[in-house]
Design a protein around this nucleic acid. Structure first.
Length: 1153
RNA sequence: GGGCGAUUAGCUCAGUCGGUUAGAGCGCUUCUCUGAUAAGGAAGAGGUCCCUGGUUCGAAUCCAGGAUCGCCCA
């Protein structure tokens, strides 16, 4: 048997390229799945990336983690299908294409043509597909890319439609009017996920504005009192509909003399100068009207203003008063009966502003909710283009954000302005185009997820998160605060919302289509492509009785997160139920970065939970749940109209009668937690907890650069994955991610950090493997002996073999358990620790046996490396496969083998070795202190150890003697001859027993005679102490013994365990030491002569007489060590090697024999 | 502003149930071993365990508040 020679300087990247070729040739990935065809599936879902950008290092991270567990489970015997996937729709794609085409508005896109535009989008989403595929293969992420799902495929889109239809048939789809973050440039609402990416610090003009009371109504206000309200969006003042106060907050009526100076509007005082009465929250008085000294940073500057508090009122005493709005563009009566009055609202706080909140119901979520609750009529003077309409006569056609300052100036002129000042804050902007977002009430399509909030929470309960805290923390909290899913986007490149609306205004019938067949049947037309604009062309006659309208598709497409959240079934072209029946749902494992918490992790969970809801009894595709039917119902502040809808929806699921009342009871307004309106479905008979779509999820952290900065293109601190791969290889890249730290903590990443891992682990492993191959090839005889030979033997070599096998078993068990628990870090570190033991203890201690071709040693090392190659296969698939292939090769790849089972362990031997190694460590420490080289043999080492320790060290005494280079090991039971004991109290046992009295115990222990106390407890006796007059007995466990060294001995100690060296060297020892020096010199000469390790030599020695004499005396040793077939003294040839041994000269001649 | 997480040696990270003198690797200094190894071993230098307060006989560890950093949200 001959193995491929191993190059110690093997380039890993080059090796990996070779192995990739082998995998392709042997079709290893496919074969690994094929072989498990009949096995129980272990389900993995690939969260689809978009391929319209180049993959980066963070993608290597997630792909490494997506790879490792499927590989492991495949070896464990499971069928792990790995279907790749691509996310292909969405606004980012559109924006990129818009830039390419130089388009900047929706009107321009439509002029360009939706068909052509979408074609461009379709082309662009696979622009970097080749890069992705190449990187994926190169880092050994085994995933089926040939059969990858794509969210734009008709079969995929159809299943997304099916899911929406199912959700509709459960009564959970509705069209709502709600305030959404809206980009006037892109012309669409943004999801919270998108908004989050666009916060920027900006300076806006903020204004404190007077709202003079004209009719106090039932309130305690006086006509002419001016409420002060604060806004950072003056452009919304033109649409002021009401003022909001908290009913329980304290407000004050204040008589003010003098005027604050306005920083933003420096054109003069904001007149009039007479004393006036203003009203605001008591708690904010000092910040809004500071009179004496400058207030906190954001407070207006005082300018001789003085005030007198006339009266303190609660918010409730203010409500009902009617006031004059600052602008007259919209008549108060247009808002309805409660327009331009003071309304109570729980969301008002005294944290900032004035405690009186200007409410523009079309431009804020709280505002809208309040408006709905108060029955105000919506008036929205701002168009979808972000410009005022003709109602705002002076500013019609202007962009709202542009006229903030002019509006404030108008207020100053009219006397309504109390104070204007610049205000710096973080405000959301469109994450792609940078336009400031408007919060804007508009119709939009929603899924009533807040209604199933408790079911989402229950599903999450069954998920195991890694790290654990995400479950109750970030993700759990997010579910608790669930709001309805804003599903629609008024865009082009996405899955079209499959809802058709009757164009007869009086009818307004809505139908949700669930399949392509259905729409083709209804319309009698072919659907060539489910995307816009083709799908928009399919229309059909309204089915409503007496209606002659035409059903046309609504213009919206859907949120891309709904696409990706549908992947468990849509990727298979099946419904969720079919997928479940096929055993491919739920997933055993998914993995993405933490930023997916509210992205993919949520969309998967939400869709799965939604689809497990029961159908409404009369489900026929009609969209019934529209907010138009429920407008007058009250709502809680934070969820606005959606909550009102929920109440209506609750009736759909609840069968009838009593249970329905129960649901209504649950949703009574004002139940205080801000989530009222969430009806639990357990009330409607679906008591079983929903199944979550994934069982285990690993949540990866972010990759930071070496300075802890987030990597970004703009900072230029991106680590390009190919650089790492070309330099260190994919195994090293993966190994770094797996073992350097817990993956969710994030990485401080640099190319150098990876190099360290290579040197410490991969190189060590590689050298150990190379070592084995070298000696296997060198051993002349074929090895018939089995690895089991000598087991049970107490010889040092048998003990070493048994020890490393036991360690191997321990490692196998540990790695298996950790990987089953999704803990890569400690699994990897266990392997690293084993490889370290293997290389730096087993191999080092067994070198001579390898040299001699000991079959047991070769077999043991081979077995260890083979098992390591299997354990390592999921981590570093290349090097693992190379080792396996060369050492065994029975299967075409290590990745086709079954996961190794752990062998027996010998715990006693493992512990004994531990002790022996500690003893060696102590002895070497003593050596170091003594300044005597280890090459110089010594007579004796004295080891202080008793009982088990002594037995352990004795058992392995050959090893200890050899490591310390001493002739004898002498044991002493106690330290009397070497040092004295020190005793200390064991806080762990005594602390529990004595508690508060512990300091006295410590004192009492310190007062004991250490030698006698130690002797007593070691003999199994007890020692008495007296605390507060009470006697207590201390046993061996209660005292910790420590060695104190005695003068004159070279001693190292650790706990109760010590090693002393006898330092006297007689002539015989000295000559023995010199003989070793001579051997050392000869070996150096051999190496210098470039001889192979197996070459025999003719040896000649000359030089100092003492050295030659020492060599003569130990000639058998010298020639044996150096493979000399003959040796001659006193003469060397011209070709010789000179060495200096303790300042004496030695000349060495070596000739190949 | 809120939520979540982090903070331990120059750097990267461990640290179990609260327990004696807080560890490892890298890097640095000195020594040492070696016919697999750019490796190994020993010693040394290097610590306000982010800060403050609390609980406790005892806190890196538990609690509260704060600081800084990161992420998510507003």
């Amino acid at each position: 048997m001959s193995r491929r020679p191993v190059d110690p300087n093997q380039s890993f990247p080059a090796l990996e390229e070779q192995i990739l070729g082998r995998w392709r040739e042997r079709d290893v990935f496919r074969e690994s799945v094929r072989r498990r065809q009949d096995a129980k599936p272990w389900v993995f879902y690939e969260g689809p990336p978009t391929a319209n950008g180049r993959p980066g290092s963070h993608h290597v991270l997630s792909r490494a983690f997506k790879d490792i567990f499927p590989r492991f489970q495949t070896m464990r015997g499971r069928l792990v299908e790995r279907k790749g996937g691509w996310d292909t729709h969405g606004l980012p794609v559109e924006i990129a294409v818009e830039k390419q085409l130089g388009l900047s508005s929706k009107a321009e896109i439509e002029a360009y043509g939706i068909a052509e535009f979408n074609q461009r989008c379709r082309d662009s989403v696979f622009e970097f597909l080749e890069d992705w595929n190449a990187l994926t293969e190169r880092i050994a992420y085994w995933v089926d890319l040939d059969d990858a799902y794509r969210t734009l495929d008709p079969s995929y889109v159809e299943q997304v439609w099916g899911a929406i239809r199912q959700i509709n048939d459960k009564g959970l789809l509705y069209e709502g009017h709600r305030v959404v973050p809206y980009c006037p440039r892109c012309g669409t609402a943004l999801s919270s996920h998108e908004v989050a990416q666009g916060y920027q610090d900006v300076v806006d003009t903020s204004a404190y504005v007077r709202f003079p009371v004209v009719d106090p109504g039932d309130s305690a206000l006086q006509p002419g009192d001016a409420l002060l309200a604060w806004t950072t969006t003056p452009w919304t003042l033109v649409a002021n509909a009401a003022l909001a106060v908290h009913p329980e907050l304290e407000y004050v009526r204040v008589r003010v003399t003098g005027r604050p100076r306005s920083e933003a509007i420096p054109k003069g005082d904001a007149a009039p100068a007479e004393p006036e009465v203003v009203v605001l929250a008591k708690a904010l008085l000092d910040r809004v009207i500071p009179t004496t000294k400058p207030g906190p940073e954001n407070a207006p500057v005082p300018s001789g203003v003085e005030y007198e508090v006339l009266e303190t009122l609660t918010g409730a005493q203010l409500t009902g008063a009617r006031y004059t709005p600052p602008f007259g563009y919209i008549a108060p009566e247009d808002w309805g009966p409660r327009g331009n009055t003071i309304l109570p609202a729980d969301f008002v706080t005294a944290d900032d502003g004035t405690g009186v909140v200007h409410t523009a119901i079309a431009f804020g979520a709280d505002d809208y909710a309040l408006g709905t609750e108060a029955g105000l009529t919506i008036q929205n003077p701002v168009g979808l283009d972000g410009r005022y309409d003709e109602r705002i006569t002076d500013y019609a056609g202007q962009k709202v954000k542009d006229v903030d300052d002019q509006l404030v100036e108008d207020l100053r002129r009219s006397g309504a302005l109390w104070l204007g000042k610049p205000y710096e804050h973080s405000y959301p902007h469109c994450w792609r185009c940078g336009t400031a977002l408007l919060y804007y009430a508009k119709p939009s399509w929603y899924i009533a997820t807040s209604k199933i909030r408790d079911r989402l929470v229950a599903a999450n309960e069954q998920v195991t998160w890694h790290p654990e805290h995400v479950k109750e923390g970030r993700f759990g909290k997010w579910l608790q605060g669930n709001v309805d899913w804003a599903l629609s986007r008024e865009r082009y490149w996405g899955t079209p919302l499959p809802v058709w609306r009757c164009d007869d205004e009086g009818c307004d019938h809505l139908h949700c289509v669930g399949t392509f067949d259905e729409i083709q049947e209804l319309s009698g037309q072919e659907l060539p492509d489910p995307h816009r604009p083709y799908v928009d062309e399919l229309t059909f006659a309204c089915r409503q009785e007496g209606c002659s309208g035409t059903m046309r598709r609504v213009p919206e497409v859907i949120d891309v997160w709904f696409d990706s959240g549908s992947m468990p079934f849509a990727q298979r072209g099946q419904t969720l139920q079919e997928t479940q029946a096929a055993g491919r749902w739920p997933a055993d494992y998914i993995c993405e970065a933490q930023d997916q918490t509210r992205g993919w992790f949520y969309s998967l969970l939400a869709i799965a939970t939604l689809l497990q809801q029961p159908d409404a009894p009369d489900a026929d595709g009609t969209v019934r749940a529209t907010p138009t039917t429920v407008r007058a119902l009250p709502a809680t502040p934070h969820e606005g109209a959606a909550t009102a809808v929920d109440r209506e929806l609750a009736g759909v699921d609840a069968p009838a009668g009593a249970e329905r009342r129960a649901v209504d009871g649950d949703t009574a307004p004002g139940d205080g937690d801000g989530s009222g309106g969430t009806a639990t479905l357990t009330a409607s008979g679906t008591a079983l907890n929903p199944t979550p779509p994934f069982r285990d999820v690993v949540c990866l952290g972010l990759i930071l650069d070496e300075h802890g900065q987030k990597m970004s293109k703009s900072k230029g601190n991106i680590v390009v994955p190919w650089d790492v791969i070309d330099r260190y290889g994919a195994d090293a890249f993966r190994w770094y991610f797996f073992t350097s730290k817990q993956p969710w903590d994030g990485y401080r990443f640099s190319t150098d950090a990876i190099g360290e891992g290579v040197r410490l682990f991969l190189r060590t492993l590689w050298n150990t493997y190379g070592f084995l191959v070298m000696y296997e090839n060198a051993a002349a005889d074929s090895r018939a002996s089995t690895a089991d030979e000598g087991l049970g033997d107490e010889s040092p070599s048998a003990l070493m073999d048994r020890w490393i096998r036991s360690r191997l078993s321990a490692t196998t068990t540990e790695v298996t358990e950790r990987l089953e628990a999704f803990d890569v870090t400690f699994a990897g570190r266990a392997i690293a620790s084993f490889v370290d033991d293997l290389s730096n203890w087993y191999v080092r201690r067994s070198r001579r046996r390898f040299w001699e071709g000991d079959p047991a040693a070769l077999a043991t090392l081979r077995e260890c490396l083979l098992t390591v190659s299997q354990l390592l296969a999921p981590f570093t698939p290349f090097v693992a496969d190379e080792i396996y292939d060369n050492l065994d090769g029975t299967e075409p790849s290590v990745h086709l083998t079954d996961w190794p089972a752990a062998g027996p362990r010998d715990l006693e031997l493992e512990a004994a070795m531990e002790t022996a190694r500690e003893t060696v460590q102590l002895g070497l420490g003593a050596r170091g202190q003594s300044k005597l080289k280890v090459r110089q043999p010594l007579h004796e080492a004295v080891v202080v150890a008793a009982d088990r320790e002594r037995v352990a060290i004795e058992r392995l005494s050959d090893i200890v003697r050899d490591e310390l280079n001493v002739h004898e090991l002498r044991f002493v039971d106690n330290a009397d001859e070497l040092g004295s004991y020190e005793i200390k109290p064991n806080y762990r046992t005594l602390g529990r027993r004595f508690g508060k009295a512990m300091p006295q115990v410590a004192e009492a222990v310190a007062g004991l005679d250490p030698a006698r106390a130690a002797a007593t407890v070691r003999a199994g006796g007890t020692v008495g102490i007296t605390i507060d007059g009470a006697d207590h007995e201390l046993s061996e466990d209660d005292l910790l013994l420590r060695m104190e060294p005695l003068e004159g001995y070279q001693l190292e100690r650790e706990g109760s365990h010590a090693v002393a060296l006898e330092l006297q060297i007689d002539d015989a020892l000295r000559r023995e030491g010199l003989a070793r020096e001579v051997v050392h010199a000869i070996q150096a000469a051999r190496k210098a002569a470039g001889l192979e390790i197996t070459d025999r030599i003719r040896l000649t020695l000359d030089g100092a007489e003492e050295l030659l004499a020492s060599a003569r005396e130990h000639e058998a040793y010298v020639t044996g060590e150096t493979l000399a077939v003959e040796v001659e003294y006193g003469r060397v040839g011209a070709q010789h090697h000179s060495a200096d041994v303790e300042e004496q000269e030695l000349r060495v001649g070596v000739l190949k024999a």
